[in-house]
Amino acid sequence: TFELKGKVGKVVKIAEDHYLVEVEGDKWIAYSDEKLSLGDRVMVVDVDGLKLKVKRIP
């Protein structure tokens, strides 16, 4: 999972307290300090167990 840091993915689902992002064909639970929208491109900035911390990228 640490090899996911720096990888780019996209938001595929928005849940009440987390996001579902697809990175390299796999779906992961993710969270972010900013509000994300469906389809946003994101970069993995940290890995916390099986959850990814992501940030939006242009």
Rank of each mutant, 00 (worst) to 15 (best):
S32M: 15
L52W: 01
V21E: 00
D26T: 09
G6P: 00
L38Q: 12
R56N: 07
K7L: 02
R56V: 09
M43W: 04
V45K: 07
L20E: 08
V47T: 06
K27N: 03
E16S: 11
G49M: 15
G6S: 01
F2S: 13
V44S: 01
D26C: 05
P58L: 07
G25L: 12
A15V: 15
Y31D: 14
M43C: 04
G49V: 08
F2N: 15
T1V: 06
K10L: 15
V23K: 00
D33Y: 08
M43Y: 11
S32E: 07
Y19S: 10
D17M: 08
L4C: 02
K55Q: 14
V12E: 09
L36E: 02
L4I: 07
Y19R: 03
V47Y: 07
V42F: 08
E34Q: 10
M43V: 12
E34W: 09
H18M: 11
V23W: 00
A30W: 00
E22C: 04
E16A: 06
R56D: 06
K5D: 13
S37H: 05
K10Q: 06
V8S: 13
K35V: 08
E3S: 01
G9F: 02
K27C: 03
V12P: 00
D40S: 08
F2A: 09
V44T: 03
K55C: 07
V23T: 02
I29F: 08
G9V: 03
L36F: 15
S32K: 14
K53N: 15
V42T: 12
K13Y: 09
M43E: 15
G25N: 12
K10C: 06
G6Y: 01
D46P: 01
M43P: 01
E22R: 06
L52V: 13
A15Y: 14
I29T: 12
V12L: 07
K55E: 13
F2C: 10
R41M: 15
K13H: 10
W28N: 02
A15W: 09
V8C: 04
R56L: 09
D26G: 07
Y19C: 04
E3N: 03
V42D: 00
I57E: 14
S37M: 05
Y31M: 12
K13I: 12
D17Y: 06
V42R: 00
V21W: 01
V54F: 01
V45N: 14
L36T: 03
L20T: 07
W28V: 03
D40Q: 09
D33L: 03
A30N: 01
S32Y: 07
E22L: 03
A30E: 00
I14M: 12
I14S: 11
K51P: 04
S37D: 07
V44C: 04
L4K: 04
F2P: 14
V11W: 00
I57S: 10
T1H: 15
D46W: 03
E3H: 03
I14T: 11
M43A: 05
I57W: 14
V54Y: 00
L52N: 02
K35P: 08
G39T: 15
G9R: 00
V45S: 11
F2V: 13
D26V: 10
S37L: 06
S37K: 14
V8L: 05
G39F: 14
Y31F: 11
K10I: 12
K7I: 01
R41F: 12
K55I: 15
I14A: 11
F2Y: 05
H18R: 12
L50F: 13
D26K: 14
G25V: 14
P58H: 15
D46A: 03
V47A: 11
M43T: 13
D33K: 06
V47M: 13
R41I: 12
L50R: 04
R56I: 08
I29P: 08
E34T: 04
A30S: 04
K51E: 06
L36V: 13
D33F: 05
W28L: 04
K13N: 09
K55R: 10
G25A: 14
K35S: 11
V45E: 14
W28Q: 02
K51G: 14
L38M: 08
D26M: 05
E16R: 12
A30I: 02
W28E: 03
V11T: 14
L50D: 12
Y31V: 09
K35L: 13
K7C: 02
G25Q: 11
W28H: 07
H18P: 02
L36N: 02
A15M: 08
K55V: 15
K35M: 13
E22G: 11
R41Q: 09
R41L: 02
G39M: 08
M43Q: 08
E3M: 01
E22S: 05
L38E: 09
R41G: 14
K51L: 15
F2R: 05
E24A: 04
V23Q: 01
S32D: 13
E3C: 02
R41Y: 07
K5A: 11
V54T: 04
S37R: 05
K7H: 03
E16Q: 15
D17L: 12
G9D: 00
I57C: 04
V11S: 02
Y31N: 07
S37W: 10
I14N: 08
V44Q: 01
D26Y: 14
L38V: 09
E3L: 03
R56S: 03
E16W: 08
K51V: 09
K10F: 12
K55T: 03
A15R: 09
E34L: 08
K55H: 09
D40V: 10
V11N: 03
V11M: 11
G9Y: 01
D17G: 09
V47Q: 12
P58A: 12
K7D: 02
R41S: 08
S37F: 03
I29E: 12
G39C: 04
K53P: 01
L20H: 15
E24C: 05
Y19W: 09
V45Y: 03
V44H: 01
L20F: 12
E34C: 06
K5P: 10
L52H: 02
V12I: 12
I14G: 09
L52M: 05
V12T: 04
G9E: 00
D48I: 05
P58R: 04
K55G: 15
I29V: 10
V44N: 01
I57F: 10
V12Q: 13
V54G: 01
R41P: 13
H18G: 06
K10E: 13
R56M: 14
D33W: 11
V8G: 09
E3T: 01
